[in-house]
Structure formats: structure tokens, C-alpha cells
Amino acid sequence: MTGEGVRRRDFINIAAVSFAGVGGLAALYPLISQMAPSADVLAESSTEIDISAIAPGQAIKAVWRKQPVFIRNLTPEEISAAEKVDVSTLRDPETLEKRTTAGKTNWLITMGVCTHLGCVPLGAGEGEVKGEFGGYFCPCHGSVYDTAARIRKGPAPKNLEVPPHEFSSDTVVKIG
């Protein structure tokens, strides 16, 4: 056997094993990808909600992506309470204006998912504790949100997330 013959043999053997390796890795792709959200789950990623029945000071819980969304009709007092806060003192500095749609500052739409570990904060349902800042209070680990749903106290790192939304009309909001 010449040296060149040996090299050619080695090359073929290495190529064969490499092909097997590449094939095995490629087969992993569908096995991993199947766990990602399926087409029907992705298709339900926007929802339209009628907000005509929510009086000032009230809130409802809607569902978007199988998670609660708080839709709150702020009273003028709550708006001014939120606007009075010095943004630079906040843990996650954001103004109420930035968190709402221009001209519809009274509609505060946030995820009902505490940014700490994902519990549903209290304060949107009738008679629920709103916490010392008049917004939301998460009973799991004691995070307190203000009337703009900004984190004010407790372990949560961020304000309640504002989902992408737009007003289809004065009474219907589309989330997602």
C-alpha cells in the first residue's frame, strides 16, 4: 500500500463518518423545532377587545397569548398621581405618556404578569387590593406597582409590560 493510497482511504473514511455526523445533527433540527409554538398558537397572537363597558376607575382582565392583560380606565386623579412622580427616582424610568397611546392616556393596557416571577398581580378585579401606590400588588413576593403599573417596591425588576396594541375604534382595542 502506497502512502497516497492510505491517505485516500483515510479521506473516504473520515468523509463517511463526517456525513453521518452531519446527518445526525440535521435530524436534530425538526426534533428541536417541534417544541416551538405551533402554527395555531402563533395564529392567535392578536385579539380584539371591546372596552366600551369599562367605567373610569375600573379595569378588566383580558387574555392575550393565554396570558392575562389588564385594561384599565384611569381616573383623572390616577393620571395626575402617575404624572406627579419624578421619573428619575423610578427603578424602571418610564412616563405614563410613554406607556399609553397619545390622546388616550386614560387607557392603561399592560400584561397582568408580574415581572418578577410571573404571578398575576392583584388590583384589576373588583375589590382587589391595589397596593400602597394605588396600582397593582403582587401577592407572591410583594411587588407593588403604581397607577401607571410601574414598579415601585418589592423584588420585580421592571414595570408591567405594555403589549403592542392599537385602538381600532374608540371602543375596540386590538392587542398583538
Binding site: 473516504i12 456525513f19 446527518g23
Partner: peptide, 19 residues
């Protein structure tokens, strides 16, 4: 196509090993 190429290589490798 990939499997065909891999199988041809596997056949050649098998011939090498058994040479």
C-alpha cells in the same frame, strides 16, 4: 440526495476497511 451520497461513502469506507 444526502443519504445517497452518505451511502456511497459508507460503501467505499466499508470496502476500505475490508480491503
Amino acid at each position: 440526495g444526502f443519504l445517497l451520497a452518505a451511502t456511497v461513502l459508507a460503501y467505499l469506507a466499508k470496502r476500505n476497511v475490508w480491503a
